[in-house]
Structure formats: C-alpha cells, structure tokens
Design a protein around this nucleic acid. Structure first.
Length: 271
DNA sequence: ATGAAATGGCCGTCGGATGC
DNA sequence: GCATCCGACGGCCATTTCAT
C-alpha cells in the first residue's frame, strides 16, 4: 500500500508544553545564540534570516522527519524565548512563504507566549491562507485557531463563519478547532456548548474530511459530557454520516474508536 | 457495476512503567 | 527526579468488502 505520507502528522497530540521531555530537548545544542542579538537588532531582516536558517537546517537533515524537524523548531523556540512577539510572527510569516513545513511556523508561534497572545482574527486569516490538506488544516487548527478561540481571542462568529464556508478545509478548521477546547493534552478544559455549536452546523456535511473531523470533535467531548454526546447522536441519527455514528458510538460504549475485532475476519474469494 | 462502509497499515504522540 | 521504553491509540489514505 502506498501512503501519501506528510512529514507532519497531528495524531493524538502535538506536544504543546505538557508532553514529556525527550532526549531531543535535552541534547539540543543550538548554535544560534550568538546570532540572536544581531537578529533582534533588525527584526524585519532578522525574521527572514532566521527563517532561512530554519530551512537550511531542515534541508541539512539526513532524515527530515517530524522528530528531527521538531528538534530544530525547539531550538529556535528556546533561542526566541525573550524575543518580541512581532519578530516571532515575522519569522512565521517568512516560513509560510516557503510553502512547505507550515506546521513549523505554527508551532513557533504557539510556543511563544507573547506571540500567541497576539493572535487575533486578522492573524488567523493571514496564517491560514493557503491551507489545502488535512495536515496543514490540523496543524493550523490545533496550534493557532483552536487555542486562540479557547482563550477568547477571537469571536465565536469567526468559527461559525468558517463552519459555513464553501471551502471544505475551512469547515474542517472549525471542527478541529474544537479539539483544542477539549483535549487535555492540548490545554483543553472542556467546552460543551461551543463544541456542539460547531457540530450542529456541520452534522449533515457528507465531505469525508469534514465527517472525520466531526467524529474527532465529538469523541474529544466524551470525557466531559458523554450524555450530551449521546443526545447529539440520538437527535441526529438520520442525518449524521455513518462513519461518524459508528466511531462515536464505539467510543461511547467501548472506549475505542475502532475496537480490534475479536474474531478473525472471514475473507471470501471474489467473483 | 457501483457506491458506501469497513478494514489494513503506516507514522506520531501520549502516558504509565521501569531503571538509573 | 529524570530519562527512556513501549503498548495503546490517534490521525490519514488506499484497499477490500458489502449492499443494492
């Protein structure tokens, strides 16, 4: 089987400060400290230069997979810890012009407290421009739009606007953003009303990318209000995509999205 | 024959267990 | 207390199976 395999996969958790530390973070000898002061002295040019440096380091890696690229990102996060928010945002902007590894830009902002606080509607519209795949959407939603929405840096109306977008990827952004409201590993504290608000808008959406996100959003809500999720399924049973119904019901009843089959599958010869 | 649903497989992350 | 290991589970796409 060939799997189109993006380097970054969101999976259960991008570490956003609550994950365990790894040897990568410990052994990260990051040689940009000396250059930092000159970058900070000239923010505009410094941002481009820093972005260039990040890309050079990524390209220099023998195996440019997620852990290796993240190691590079962590080094820059550490080096930029005391930097102005605007510089970090400009580095992210410069990274986004490259068209690949968008998630690095999103993580840089996410892990810089002041920069993250600066994220509002204009910044989200800017940084989200060009999202056109599930992995760019999920990185954007989990790192930027979701946390910003959770902290009420943007209005509910913006998320509603995305949920009603003709663009499938923006509709998915609206749903995946709810994951940041609820997933503890991402700083979520549980927000039933705002999650179900988005789910109701998209409950009939047959697009596969949207349906999978709906399943994800509802499953993340179960630890907080399983009765609300059950009621949502009951009242939308006819409209909701079969996949969503099955996965969320599995999670409610068995604790797993796709429980392992207990009996071997019977394979019938075709034809 | 065809579309929908289910499954398989790959990679990434989490979090408990373990060892130093 | 900290680092590391590893099983469980998450994401997705591609393929297979099922239902009509």
């Amino acid at each position: 089987m060939t799997l189109s395999n993006p380097v970054w996969k969101p999976a259960v958790g991008l570490s956003i400060g609550v994950g365990r530390r790894t040897s990568m973070s410990r052994s990260n000898s990051f040689p940009i400290t000396n250059a930092r002061s000159s970058h900070l002295a000239s923010p505009a040019g410094g941002a481009v230069s820093l972005a260039d440096g990040i890309f050079r380091r990524i390209c220099a890696r023998e195996a440019p997979n997620t852990p290796n690229i993240r190691q590079i990102r962590k080094g820059y996060t550490e080096a930029l810890r005391q930097a102005d928010a605007e510089l970090v945002l400009n580095v992210a902007r410069a990274l986004l012009t490259r068209g690949e590894h968008r998630w690095v830009a999103y993580e840089l902002v996410h892990h810089h407290r002041a920069a993250m606080h600066r994220i509002g509607e204009p910044e989200l519209e800017e940084f989200g421009r060009g999202i056109d795949s599930w992995w760019t959407v999920d990185a954007f939603s989990l790192e930027l739009s979701g946390p910003a929405w959770r902290e009420r840096q943007v209005e509910d109306g913006l998320i509603e606007c995305w949920a009603r977008s003709p663009d499938r990827w923006w509709r998915r952004v609206a749903l995946v953003s709810t994951v940041a409201l609820n997933a503890r590993a991402r700083g979520g504290r549980g927000d039933v009303p705002r999650t179900l608000f988005v789910c109701r808008i998209l409950v009939k959406d047959a697009d596969n990318m949207v349906a999978k996100a709906l399943s994800w959003a509802l499953r993340e809500l179960i630890p907080y209000e399983r009765q609300a999720v059950q009621s949502f399924l009951d009242s939308n049973r006819e409209a909701i995509p079969r996949r969503v119904l099955r996965e969320v019901m599995n999670k409610l009843s068995l604790g797993l999205k796709n429980p392992r089959r207990t009996t071997p599958k019977v394979v019938r010869p075709r034809g």
